[in-house]
Design a protein around this nucleic acid. Structure first.
Length: 614
DNA sequence: TTAGGGTTAG
């Protein structure tokens, strides 16, 4: 019930009750119950509990959760509805721990029993806390009280299992047990599959939903389109787009936003752009979807769209900033990133965990590791992504020891490492020459954390050993792998062979890479360089000829730098641009300094350069 | 007769 409705049922006067202190309201509400004289008899309701519960809701809806709790605490009698309203107030305010504590208090000490309303609400809190343990306890309680069978409880149980812990088996069990399923049951199941990234699973359920002739609504369509987007298969996406139009949901914003997202995720940016311009109504999510879509493949355009969004009067939120910061990181445009950071602070979003994580990444990629560190150390709460981003930053800046120290600190803080953070720390060890530390982490990963190494992890270890000159050991590791090494693992060995001039093993590794990826020009370049270093110019020429025949499509290495708000990009041997002369003067100066410091250039690379490679 | 559900952007 809204505040307005509440007032009309109690008094004709237009009073905003949530603006009155709860203590005064409570004394008025319970006045006749306590047999005392009310100062305003027109406010005295027939059932004070109903009015107090309505006020708890009213306070919660207006963001006054402390006032709601004060009112709740001062109620002389609290029925199950009052308890549930207060728990709901906490969940709608994202105070899930408070909601859980109140539920425990209710179940343990209060004279009232939780009912289906209470259970479905508290399951939402369990899901948001990602606590399978609490969720399972509530499931047990629901069974004990015979509440399983209520569609609200069953749907909330499915949602909890599917969304909080990816337990799709348990979600399925609950789903199968529902005798008469409704559209929410089906939608919740599709959401579960989409949540774990199984778009095909979601689409199978959607198909089943159609076969069972369940009435389709915007909820089911938007999640089904999201499932299509997860598969990245445009054919499904276009079929779904047609179905949306046919069912008359072509103007529903969540549905159209998910179609826009689908085109972006399928890599069809021109279709996405066309669709975006044809949309009759756009909201902030529409803009955020397009910005995020462009960030993944054309970061520069993503920043242009952000600028257009602001000029059209939309105010960015944390989702917008997250994509824009990622775009700045991809482009390594420090000044732009700093300006966006200013906008984040201005909006009061600098405590947003995901944003702080992306800022750590952005500053590191823009070369400013000290600002990454500052954000990291100022953070009150850190998650696995925070630690991983900081470790990747340290690793890419050559601070291997700092990354190792951070990893140990993270484990001490109670965060369980995953495969990605191991890749971060192993890569940092590799670049800093910390071979023994890296090998120790590899053993810990397998032995202590039971994480099975994948191609990427093996690639890191081969790189770690290879860079340190332990190339034969790296080769033995590849031979001992439980699955066939892919081109990245062989590529790491090839790079090590080239660096340490192991021609035979290098040629072998290059062949393995080219067996798996015949178009990998980098491998041809390395192979030809190995032949050149051996003085086998006939073999060298043969490879180069082969490369020319294939079109020599090795992507040219590109560098860029931001000076006074402008980005300058250049490739090897570039003579373009107005500042070329100055750049070459500085380059000559640097070359002189390096030679004085004892640097001997690698002439093998010169062969590559002459051929117009990277 | 006061409390409850599923969708889209990182």
């Amino acid at each position: 019930m809204s505040t307005r409705k509440l007032i009309s049922s109690t008094s004709k006067k237009s009073i905003h009750f949530h603006k009155i202190p709860p203590t005064i309201l409570n004394s008025l509400i319970w006045a006749d119950k306590n047999e005392t004289q009310s100062s305003n008899p027109s406010l005295t309701p027939k059932n004070p509990s109903i009015l107090a519960t309505n006020l708890i809701k009213s306070y919660s809806e207006s963001g006054q959760i402390i006032e709601a709790r004060t009112l709740f605490d001062e109620m002389p009698e609290r029925d199950v509805v009052a308890w549930t309203a207060m728990i709901t107030g906490y969940t709608s305010f994202h105070y899930h721990t408070h909601a859980w504590r109140l539920f425990v208090e209710m179940a343990g000490t209060a004279a009232v029993d939780p009912n289906e309303y209470t259970v479905s609400t508290v399951l939402k809190a369990c899901r948001s806390m990602k606590s399978l343990l609490y969720g399972t306890l509530v499931h047990g309680l629901a069974l004990k009280r015979g509440l399983e069978g209520s569609l609200y409880v069953d749907n909330a149980l499915m949602d909890m299992y599917a969304t909080c812990c990816d337990c799709m088996d348990s979600a399925w069990m609950v789903f199968k047990g529902i005798k008469v399923k409704n559209d929410v049951s089906w939608t919740t199941l599709i959401t579960g599959y989409t949540h774990i990234g199984d778009g095909y699973g979601g689409l199978r359920v959607f198909r089943h939903m159609i076969l069972e002739e369940v009435k389709l609504n915007p909820y089911s369509f938007s999640i089904a389109v999201r499932a299509c987007a997860s598969t990245c298969w445009l054919v499904f996406g276009k079929l779904m787009h047609a179905a949306v139009t046919k069912h008359g949901f072509g103007s529903n914003i969540p549905v159209t936003n998910s179609i826009l997202d689908m085109y972006c995720r399928c890599g069809c940016l021109s279709e996405a752009n066309q669709y975006f311009h044809g949309m009759s109504e756009k909201d902030l999510i529409t803009w955020n979807t397009l910005i995020a879509g462009y960030e993944r493949s054309d970061s520069s355009e993503s920043l242009n769209i952000f600028s257009r969004m602001e000029s059209e009067g939309f105010s960015p939120n944390s989702f917008t900033f997250s994509s824009v910061i990622a775009a700045c990181a991809n482009l390594a445009v420090l000044r732009c990133g700093q300006q966006v950071h200013g906008g984040i602070i201005h909006k009061g979003l600098d405590r947003d965990l995901a944003l702080a994580n992306s800022l750590i990444d952005m500053y590191a990629k823009c070369g400013n590791i000290s600002d990454s560190q500052k954000i990291f150390s100022d953070m009150l709460h850190r998650d696995l992504v925070t630690w991983t981003s900081m470790m990747i930053g340290f690793g890419s800046h050559g601070y291997g020891k700092e990354a190792v120290v951070l990893f140990d600190e993270m484990v001490r803080s109670g965060i369980r490492p995953d495969r990605i953070v191991f890749i971060a720390v192993l890569s940092a060890c590799s670049h800093a020459g910390l071979v023994d530390e890296g090998l120790r982490y590899f053993e810990t990963m397998v032995g202590k954390y039971n994480i099975k190494p994948n191609q990427e992890i093996y690639g890191c270890i081969v790189d770690l050993l290879g860079r340190a000159g332990r190339v034969n050991e790296a080769y033995r590791l590849i031979q001992s792998m439980p699955f066939k090494a892919d081109e990245t693992v062989w590529g790491a060995l090839l790079a090590a062979c080239k660096a340490h001039r192991l021609a035979d093993l290098g040629k072998f590794a290059a062949r393995r890479v080219l067996d798996l990826r015949p178009n990998m020009m980098g491998a041809y370049v390395m192979l030809s360089n190995i032949y050149a270093a051996e003085g086998k110019y006939k073999e060298f020429a043969k490879i180069r000829k082969m490369m020319r025949r294939m079109g020599n499509k090795k992507e040219v290495g590109k560098s860029w730098i931001e000076v006074k708000n402008q980005v300058y990009s250049f490739v090897v041997g570039d003579k373009m641009g107005s500042h070329t002369e100055h750049i070459y003067v500085v380059l000559d100066l640097l070359n002189g300094n390096m030679k004085e410091a004892g640097y001997v250039p690698d002439l093998d690379c010169l062969v590559n350069d002459l051929e117009g490679g990277s």
